[in-house]
Design a protein around this nucleic acid. Structure first.
Lengths: 167, 167
DNA sequence: TTACAGTAATTGAAGCATGAATGGTTGCAA
DNA sequence: TTGCAACCATTCATGCTTCAATTACTGTAA
């Protein structure tokens, strides 16, 4: 009655059904995300790029002080090196400005300019309505199912990602 | 009894709870995908990039004929212009080769070389075990919930993406 | 005070991604 | 046959993304 293969005996064994379904979940997640991303990006095209939108959106909901590169980096899950370029382009458009923190001159706050605040106020609701258009038609049960499942997945990934991968 | 505001009367109205939850779903989807993507990429780092892995993986499961740029483009949801570069790099490493279709000289087949096939055979199972490691620990009910929800979302996006956006 | 470990942002190289424009190829219609 | 519309891959410009190396600044310990 002993099984021919167990979970991870040595490494080179066929995957069990449950493991297969984990992989399938990841593939579906990736497919859905990229499929949706196309529409999301398309709807945003004339306004700005998605990463730029994300920055504006975070700044809009932050207080007067603005956000540092480190903070934005954590919020948006991108590297600080990446942000430098994104902020450069937003700054060229006059939508944000850099301001060194006088208390700790290593940090620089990123703040919305007047123009940037106006722009964010204009495009955020517009984008939200586009998002609704893209996803509306899904049955509410499905939406709830996904929301709660994704929340669980999020918890799992947060916990897993922290203390590195064992083995 | 007539409601104060309906779904899309003119554009500038507050979102309804159900619409809010659609947006929340998208945000969670994006967060989870990017969070997981970090781990997935990290696990693949020494082998090759994720897009390159995806190409090798598709070629491995295709028959001897290989795949054209158009076919790969549809399968991987990337533009043909993008693929040109990815295939260039795989070709430089000797893992794939281009071969013009003699029946229609516009098309070029991309095929695994001997070396490419060996390499794919080596890294695909390895990567699958890494994926399992990243996601294992999730309760099976959650996995099923996500799998079925994502399948529905996929259907919706496929249907929606085809015939453009109405309005 | 000076050395230094740690943190913050920037830079640079490589690769991924898009959209638009280009050149080769095909098949069909005039 | 010639013209042409449609299709395929490539190229180009722009921007995103990572990782690794660098510069600038801070606080602390010698």
């Amino acid at each position: 009655m002993k099984p021919l293969s167990d979970t991870q005996p040595h490494g080179h064994l066929a995957l069990q059904p449950h493991e297969r379904s984990l992989i399938g979940m990841w593939l579906r997640l990736a497919k859905c995300y990229n499929l949706a991303l196309r529409d999301v990006r398309a709807s945003l095209r004339d306004a700005c790029t998605l990463p730029q939108f994300d920055v504006l959106s975070q700044l809009k909901r932050s207080d007067e002080r603005g956000l540092t590169f480190s903070e934005l980096s954590r919020l948006l899950l991108v590297t600080a090196g990446n942000l430098t370029g994104i902020i450069d382009r937003l700054e060229e458009q006059g939508l944000v400005r850099r301001e060194t923190n006088p208390e700790d001159r290593r940090e620089t706050f990123i703040k919305l300019t007047e123009k940037g605040r106006d722009y964010a106020t204009e495009i955020i609701p517009k984008h939200e309505r586009d998002l609704v258009k893209i996803f509306s038609g899904l049955k509410p049960e499905i939406v709830d199912q996904l929301r709660s499942g994704l929340a669980e997945l999020r918890k799992h990934l947060d916990a897993h990602g922290r203390h590195g991968s064992d083995e």
